[in-house]
Design a protein around this nucleic acid. Structure first.
Lengths: 144, 144
DNA sequence: ACGCCACGTTGTACTGTACAACTAGTTTCC
DNA sequence: GGAAACTAGTTGTACAGTACAACGTGGCGT
């Protein structure tokens, strides 16, 4: 096995290990907002509102899945729907004030957890790791 | 925001994005063996057999979850149980010949997918990426 | 105006997961 | 030697997340 094969193998194993754990870790840390809900809410916040269809496309989720996730977030009072006056089929989704607040809390706590995990990393390593991940995910997106 | 903060932010986002997609991607690529089953079966293969409890501990899964996953793998004919003659509570789990074969196929195809995704990476970048992932996951393990 | 397309919801089914209660072996310790 | 405590695994139950298919409703093109 070449060095190259060994690296690829490691990357595969480690990415897989990470993926397996991510949900459970997130759930333990933030029982009030699952990883999926968090991601969707964060996207709404980031985009200053968007449609359910956009969320589905962006996250490769079925529209029914998004519909239910949003319904749950609405029930919690974290998201509100604004019917587009120009097209009554469309609902533009926005975080509520409360939703934005919860999101901010979870984001802060996630960020802190990541900072802790990465505390003893040097600047240069962090920077490189970040760019590798971006590159890797971009490639995955392209190849499916 | 410092450079350091920005890097941490990116790492967080990209790891999260990856985690969200991993299961679905795995399911699309390998309908015959889910990500979880694959992982468990691979561990059995790797360890030359182990107990259900060991799998649960290693993957932070409840023993009931492992029990059901193994039951499913057994039903598919991919795993067999051998009662430990010294302790009749214990079942040592092993991949069957067929299980090992399926595992080998999936592993090969996963490996190829990873190789494709990483095809245009240089040796040195691959190596560094791999070691960053190891380091990151090790830190996560330590801190919970 | 009719048919087609886009947006979203609802019915249904399945996977992965945890927790709690249970059964059945094993070890400890008096 | 036997009761209590422990360990391995299974089963009942519940729930989240997900997809697919069928549907309702609203807008658009010819």
């Amino acid at each position: 096995m070449t060095q190259r094969d060994a690296s690829v193998e490691t990357i595969q194993q480690e990415m897989t290990a990470f993926a397996r754990r991510a949900r459970a870790t997130a759930a333990r840390m933030h029982p009030e907002l699952s990883l999926v809900s968090y991601t969707l809410l964060a996207h709404l916040d980031d985009q200053q509102g968007c449609r359910a269809t956009d969320l589905a496309a962006h996250y490769y989720l079925d529209k029914s899945t998004v519909s239910r996730q949003i319904a749950a977030l609405e029930k919690l009072g974290f998201v509100e729907r604004r019917i587009d006056p120009d097209d009554h089929r469309v609902q533009v989704l926005h975080p509520t004030a409360e939703g934005a607040q919860v999101l901010a809390n979870v984001t802060a706590s996630r960020r802190q957890a990541f900072h802790e995990r990465l505390a003893d990393w040097g600047e240069e390593d962090l920077d490189r790791f970040a760019s590798y991940l971006v590159r890797y995910n971009a490639a995955q997106e392209k190849l499916g």
